[in-house]
C-alpha cells in the first residue's frame, strides 16, 4: 500500500511538472496575438526598392508606398517610379476578400480577380496576396517547435487559413521569443514548401520595429526577390483620397 501511494505521488509530481512545463510555454494563439499587436503605425509613407533576381539577372524597381489604417481596415498604395509607372492599390477589410487594382504603364487601371492573388506581384517572387493584410482571426495556429533563426530564438508556428480560397496551403511563421517579431515565414503550396520569406535588418523607427529587408526566395532555386525600405515615416498624414482607385488612375 505504501508503495502504491509512493507511485501515485510520483506520477502526480511528474504530471504536475510536465503540465506546468507545458503551460509555462505560450499557446500559438497567444504568441500570434502578441505578434499582431506589435505597432505598425496608423499610417506610413516609404520609399522602397524591389530587386527581382532570376537566373542571375537583377531587375530593379523603385516605388513609393503609403498606407493608412481605419480601425482594422487598411488601404495601401504602391506607386512605381522606375523603370515603370505601374501602380498597385490594396483595400483590406476584416471578414472580406482583399480588393486589388493595378495601374498599367499606359495609365489604365484593372481590377485584379481573386484568383490572381496567387500570381506574382510585379513579376517578382512575391504574390499579389503577399501585399495584403493578414487578419489574425482568419487563420488557425499551432505551435510546432522552437527554433533559432540567425541566432534569434523563435517560436515556430504552423498557420492555415480558415475556409477555402487560400493562396497557400499552410505557412510556418517564426516569431521571436523575446520580441514577438516575425523573422521568417515558410510558404507551402499544395503541401509543398515553395517559398521562404526572411525578414532582416530590423530597426526601431519612431518606436516601431521595422524589418527593412524582406527576402522572398523560392525553394526550387528559381530566384528570389528583395524588398528594401530605403526610408519610412510612420504616422504621417495621408489623404484618404490618395488611397482610391480614382487616385490610382490619374
Amino acid at each position: 500500500m505504501k508503495n502504491i501511494n509512493r507511485l501515485f505521488i510520483q506520477i502526480i509530481i511528474s504530471l504536475f511538472l510536465t503540465i506546468s512545463a507545458i503551460y509555462s510555454q505560450e499557446s500559438a494563439d497567444s504568441i500570434m496575438k502578441k505578434n499582431d499587436e506589435i505597432l505598425s503605425g496608423q499610417s506610413f509613407k516609404r520609399e522602397m526598392t524591389l530587386l527581382v533576381i532570376k537566373q542571375g539577372v537583377n531587375e530593379k524597381k523603385e516605388f513609393e508606398g503609403f498606407s493608412k489604417k481605419d480601425g482594422r481596415s487598411r488601404r495601401s498604395r504602391m506607386q512605381f517610379t522606375s523603370p515603370t509607372e505601374m501602380g498597385f492599390l490594396v483595400w483590406d477589410k476584416p471578414g472580406e476578400d482583399s480588393q486589388q487594382w493595378i495601374r498599367l504603364s499606359g495609365g489604365r487601371v484593372r481590377r485584379i480577380a481573386s484568383s490572381d492573388k496567387g500570381k506574382p506581384w510585379m513579376n517578382s517572387h512575391f504574390y499579389n496576396d503577399d501585399v495584403s493584410e493578414r487578419y489574425i482571426e482568419n487563420y488557425t495556429y499551432e505551435l510546432i517547435g522552437e527554433v533559432s533563426v540567425n541566432g534569434i530564438p523563435c517560436y515556430k508556428i504552423r498557420s492555415e487559413k480558415k475556409g477555402s480560397g487560400a493562396t497557400y496551403s499552410k505557412t510556418e511563421i517564426y516569431v521571436g521569443k523575446k520580441d514577438y517579431l516575425t523573422y521568417r515565414v515558410n510558404y507551402y503550396e499544395g503541401g509543398r514548401h515553395t517559398k521562404t520569406l526572411t525578414l532582416t535588418r530590423y530597426e526601431v523607427i519612431q518606436n516601431i520595429p521595422t524589418a527593412r529587408m524582406l527576402t522572398m526566395e523560392r525553394t526550387d532555386g528559381k530566384g528570389k526577390s528583395v524588398l528594401y525600405i530605403k526610408n519610412i515615416k510612420y504616422n504621417v498624414p495621408i489623404d484618404d483620397r490618395e488611397l482610391t482607385r480614382e487616385a490610382l488612375a490619374r
Binding site: K60, G145, R201, M213
Partner: peptide, 20 residues
C-alpha cells in the same frame, strides 16, 4: 529542430545593399 534550422542563415544580403 533548433539544431537543424539554426544553420539557415540568409546570405548575400550585404552584397545586395549596394544595389538596393
Amino acid at each position: 529542430q533548433q539544431q537543424a534550422e539554426d544553420d539557415l542563415i540568409p546570405t548575400e544580403q550585404d552584397d545586395l545593399m549596394s544595389i538596393l
